[in-house]
């Protein structure tokens, strides 16, 4: 199929102490598709996301981006097209809202701009317009991030992910530190912006209900293996039972 954006092939990773985090995982992510990965803690969800980002080295297996050469050798192919959203937001708490959004462009500006913290004007304008998109239209963007609520911080995290105009967003349990109401809002926002900007999402989640309403496809993982890989409409209770045995 030509519209495969990212494919993980036979990914294996064993941590020190013999824990099998990934035991030969195969996943294909298509363009403009939202995928949720379900699984209990230690199922290998985070390891999978980290290995795509190059933060964890796979023992064997490969990752391909747009059917190009394997990105294992050169993560920079992928990094310009990928953004990440984190459970703990991973914002620089003492920097301003604006700077935190601009950090999404960190690899794309020159050294002297980084040194003196002078960001291109068009990037700044884009960051401000993104604030509107993530529902923080009237916020003072010179305020420090540390003074914001969890939901607001995650909205900033999403804006940071969007500013690099990614083709794919990886989200590592993006709502697990938020209350259920805020979590729903954040997932809805993520889904709407992804569909609008034609971005694919690979998102690990804990809550089955959220996964069903948020994702097009749900993948279940347990002990480093994929248990099921189905459209969310076709997800059965028996599938979930296998996951949380």
């Amino acid at each position: 199929m030509t519209n495969i954006l990212l494919s993980v092939k036979a990914a294996k990773k064993q941590y020190k102490g013999g824990i099998n985090a990934l035991g030969g995982v195969n996943i294909e992510i298509h363009k403009n598709e939202i995928i949720a990965i379900l699984g209990s803690s230690g199922a290998g969800k985070s390891t999978l996301l980290k290995s795509i980002l190059g933060l964890v080295k796979l023992d064997t297996g490969n990752i391909f981006f747009k059917n190009n050469e394997p990105i294992i050798k050169n993560f920079s192919i992928l990094r310009s097209s990928i953004s990440t959203i984190y459970q703990n937001f991973n914002l620089v708490s003492r920097s301003s809202i604006l700077i935190n959004i601009l950090l999404g462009k960190v690899a794309k500006v020159s050294n002297w701009r980084i040194l003196f913290n002078i960001w291109p004007k068009e990037d700044q304008l884009k960051a401000i317009s993104l604030l509107k998109e993530v529902g923080l239209k009237d916020i003072n963007y010179n305020k420090r991030v540390e003074n914001l609520s969890g939901g607001q911080q995650q909205r900033i995290g999403i804006a940071r992910a969007l500013i690099g105009s990614p083709e794919i967003i990886l989200a590592d349990e993006p709502v697990s530190s938020l209350d259920p109401e805020t979590a729903k809002e954040i997932l809805r926002l993520l889904k709407d912006t992804a569909k609008k900007n034609r971005i694919s999402i690979l998102c690990s989640l804990h809550q089955v209900e959220f996964a069903k309403s948020f994702a097009d496809r749900v993948i279940g993982m347990s002990d480093g293996q994929i248990i099921f890989d189905k459209l969310s409409k076709k997800l059965l209770k028996s599938d979930l039972k296998k996951l949380y045995k």
Partner: peptide, 12 residues
């Protein structure tokens, strides 16, 4: 956390 976020974005 924030350091990992920037490394993932390809920052030196």
């Amino acid at each position: 956390g924030p350091q990992d976020a920037l490394i993932a974005l390809g920052a030196s």
